[in-house]
Design a protein around this nucleic acid. Structure first.
Lengths: 341, 341
DNA sequence: CTGAAAGCGCTAACAA
DNA sequence: TTGTTAGCGCTTTCAG
């Protein structure tokens, strides 16, 4: 056995090993154009035995085509985004396209860097979370000349296309459900995240609807970092001790809501009789809690699928006539922590 | 304003706009070589105003260098892997290197495809979960000529380098802790995953140590799919109804363990008096449960960090003298579901 | 069905 | 400090 060549193999190596021109080897390896069964077999055999892996960098440069879709999301640790990714992957799996993830950690400057980095690989398209971006980011996206799908949120104007839910509306609908159930002393618990625009919009929609009914949020509590479940417990304790009159707690996500629920159950508080609870997201993860938390599905997987479908269509045909604005409409899931009436 | 050029900008455009040669523009944009402050400013100005984004494909082809690290993991939906990713990102952030994720869905054939795809972009290095790969995958990795770090598991022989914990040992140590606490009627609950080698190894270590003490696993229960918390509940009910003598339940992950815990508390079972419980992973997510589950930290973030450090060192200098085998040693966290004595 | 020539956009290496 | 010349490994295009 010869020493492993330090130089990566090239088409030329396969060409020499098989006695077929580079061009024809390339054809075989890409299944393009007509090649006789005989040469085809020879080439495949040579490529395999050499362990040849094509160089996509050279291929992409020559063909001016890159089968990558840049997916830019705030975090992987928030279950929401891996679920969006599943939706995207599931759809792209049936195409030539491949998702490549970039993470921004909820920071606009990092988003800008990641975006620049990804665009410099000339992806076929971009899927990016949110509608709020720095001017530079928007400029890059607009100038890229490729399809751009902004996801998660539809409260705003997309650069090119968007798929998501209206978080304002989500907030409004939850407020309606809560008011309808007869709760009026309402507290809000959320993340200390000025940059979480979607949470902000939900809160705005929420307070707007309450205001129309003459109700104001009675108390609020925010957290950052740490285990959401534990934080949910702590915050709930804090807010209830500070404002015992509260009869409903609206959490900005299900994890802290679950923590709150566990706290209330621990304390023997009657949920939803004495206090009602609701979260947001509809995470399957929590099925199995002692009581099912009221929530609202953020339709994560569906958003991923839809976005990927748009991307696939647009990459195939940039002039495809498709809806570039897709607003999905989640419903309140009453669970068992919101009174029925 | 002129119509947006459909053709992406090239170095040449910046060169013409700034009246500086392409080569010098390239130098400025990469901060390489000496360039006078005057030309530098001119170039930067031109690049910015045009909105030029360099083409890394061409750059990589010309320089034969790609600053990407391929990270290949089974799933993003299992919290374990996003945490490993954090560790990797945190370390690579201080380097030129960039992680790119590929997901295998726990399927060897998909691993092979993903690996092939990623290697065809000629990354500087590969970080891949597990020590078990198809022959083809191993061959590709070995032939790639780049540093390969296998992570999570150290029970086996790496292709090049490995960072992880010994899952056999983890199983043995948990068994010891359980025996020491005086439990003898032990049940095992896990995932129905023939391909989860690490869970398998834990189980092997576990039974091995029990056997030495003349103890056998009394009953087992497996699941697949669905919400782990809910499944944990169901499985626990099933196994306890089938084998009421059980006095300890060892779960292959914390989520199902948490489900089991909630079930037991619901039923008024004395934990850890009547029945002891333990999981695996040490997920922070669960802090905030009514009782702290006994578990064993899989050291996910640390594994990511270490792997990234090795990669960074080896990319910098392929002959760097570093440990290529790093076994981290987690400890049993007794929590509140394992008797003390 | 197969091959030869001419780049893709950039950078290494060398010259000025 | 700046510019010129050759490719990087592949695919497009055009000939056979």
């Amino acid at each position: 056995m010869a020493a492993t060549p330090p130089r990566p193999l090239t088409l030329r190596d396969v060409s020499e090993a098989s006695g077929v021109s580079e061009m024809t080897v390339s054809r075989v390896l890409r299944n393009r154009g007509d090649v006789s069964e005989a040469t085809r077999a020879k080439v495949l055999e040579a490529a395999k035995s050499l362990g040849y892996v094509p160089n996509k960098i050279a291929g992409a440069l020559a063909s001016q085509r890159v089968n990558l879709v840049a997916v830019i999301i705030p975090s992987l640790r928030n279950m929401v985004f891996p679920e969006v990714m599943s939706g995207i992957s599931a759809v792209l799996e049936d195409t030539e396209l491949q998702p490549v993830v970039g993470v921004t950690d909820y920071m606009p400057e990092k988003e800008e860097r990641v975006l620049y980095e990804m665009l410099s690989w000339r992806p076929s398209s971009v899927i990016i979370a949110g509608l709020e971006h720095s001017d530079a980011s928007r400029a890059m996206l607009a100038a890229s000349g490729i399809p751009v799908v902004e996801i998660m949120d539809t409260d705003g104007t997309p650069i090119d296309a968007m798929v998501g839910i209206s978080h304002r509306r989500a907030g409004r609908e939850m407020a309606q459900a809560i008011l309808k159930a007869g709760y009026t002393n309402i507290g809000f618990l959320g993340t200390k995240m000025p940059l979480d625009h979607r949470a902000r919009k939900r809160f705005e929609g929420f307070t707007e609807t309450l205001a129309k009914a003459g109700v104001e949020v009675m108390d609020q509590e925010f957290y950052s970092g740490g285990s959401a479940l534990a934080k949910g417990r702590e915050m709930t304790q804090t807010i209830l001790e500070r404002t015992p009159e509260l009869d409903f707690l609206y959490y900005s996500n299900d994890m802290i809501g679950a923590g709150g629920l566990l706290y209330c159950l621990d304390k023997g508080i009657d949920v939803p009789g004495q206090i009602g609870l609701a979260g947001f997201n509809g995470v399957e993860l929590l099925d199995g809690l002692p009581r099912k938390l009221a929530t609202m599905d953020a339709m994560r997987t569906e958003i991923g699928r839809k976005a990927a479908e748009i991307v696939a269509a647009l990459v195939e045909d940039p002039d495809a006539e498709i809806d570039r604005i897709v607003e999905l409409t989640p419903k309140v899931a009453m669970g068992e922590t919101l009174k029925k009436r």
